[in-house]
Design a protein around this nucleic acid. Structure first.
Lengths: 219, 219
DNA sequence: CGAGTAAATTACTGACCAGTCATTAAGCAA
DNA sequence: TTGCTTAATGACTGGTCAGTAATTTACTCG
């Protein structure tokens, strides 16, 4: 309409930014419709590009998917590392982990990634292996270490730390998933996320409180 | 080859059994590939039929999917009802519920249904509503009642029973999901399901054991 | 400014698959 | 056995979409 608008180029050359844009758009679209139902044209439109452009940066749909998962998983690891405070008090360290974890679980990226992983991962053994070692085992090792410190110092009851870490994850991850499905989980829908967090945290620490006999320090 | 074989009809008329056969096959195929990636030809082959036959019993793919979910969910409810023992002792009642629930969670049907629900449910508001009221709320009400009885009689610590039931479900459902993803969850892979069950049950009951101080008031 | 090149677009093709329908065959009844 | 009903088949069609390639457009540098 105006001369300003007519001087604007229809599109710009941004080879540096394209991969990131495409991956972000692809994650969103894949998460909503699944791998098979996602059309490359939709991803392109979502990224404000044309389909052909995607093929300049990724060889095909499947490889784009691989890269989406890989990059998201790596982002998760990076973030997980942040949660791990260099905190001598194991209870405080756990609380910081829980807090960071809960924030992550409520993010759209977790929701998207989780949906993709639960459905498509079995078709991609390489991604599955990557996820198993680089996310699950790594995160578990991290939490387990803190839990062991808590048990050694007597602020947590003694039990298999691997089991203890699995229980912790169960509670948080499941609530994270429900949080994103509030439509079907009405009992969660109206509860403030922070309250939800406290419920989970308190429940866990109650389960882990030291045995009756040594009632020295309680949190 | 033999006269016996040549006398066998190429196919049989079984109008009574077809719908069930098709639904079973469809659940299996949908669960493995998702709605969009599942080909009607595959479902037909899986059921030992031709594609055309499916269209004699279901108007289209989407409606077949709806019916698959509906019938599976109804089967779940029926089964859930079985778990609820008419057991006066709330602890024993809970244990029976846990046992039945854990068996169900480990079944292929749960795995299939769960995958479908997490991915496709958002596109089917009617199914979502059905699932919310007929499964989640109903099951929750059931467990909550038993928990309340346990709290009243003093064998369980007092807390919001709705929260207590959510925590119970979290632990079991999440472990159920991991059980079906043992490939990615190596720490679970080598553990006997019964041991896993005991770990979850014990953890939960420890979390719910009555407070240290007031071990007196029993009714 | 052009001329060159790299980025992005768009129109196209071939494969795939949901849904249809004309044909075949099973089973039944007389 | 024959003829009728209807279950079941499978070849076919039309639309959709991944991937390609010819073309256009933005940018750069002499």
């Amino acid at each position: 309409m105006t001369s300003d608008a007519s001087l604007e180029p229809r599109w710009r050359r941004l080879p540096e930014e394209r991969p990131r844009q495409i991956l972000d758009a692809a994650l969103a679209v894949f998460a909503e419709r699944g791998l098979a139902a996602s059309r490359l044209d939709d991803i392109a439109k979502h990224a404000g590009l044309s389909k052909g452009t995607i093929y300049l940066y990724f060889p095909n749909k499947e490889e784009l998917f691989r890269e989406v998962v890989r990059s998201s998983v790596i982002a998760f690891i990076a973030r997980a590392e942040e949660f791990v405070a260099v905190e001598p008090d194991p209870i405080k360290a756990l609380e910081r982990w829980m807090d960071g974890f809960w924030k992550w679980l409520r993010s759209p990226v977790f929701h998207a990634l989780n949906r993709l992983l639960t459905t498509e991962l079995s078709s991609f053994p390489d991604l599955q292996a990557f996820y198993a070692t680089e996310v699950i085992e790594r995160a578990q090792r991290l939490v387990r270490g803190t839990l062991e410190r808590g048990m050694d110092s007597g602020v947590l009851r003694r039990m298999d730390p691997l089991v203890a870490s699995r229980m912790l994850s169960s509670l948080f991850v499941m609530h994270g998933m429900w949080y994103h499905q509030r439509e079907s989980h009405k009992s969660i829908a109206h509860i403030d996320p922070d309250v939800l967090f406290e419920q989970i945290r308190d429940f866990y620490f109650t389960a882990m409180r030291p045995d009756v006999s040594g009632a020295s320090d309680q949190r």
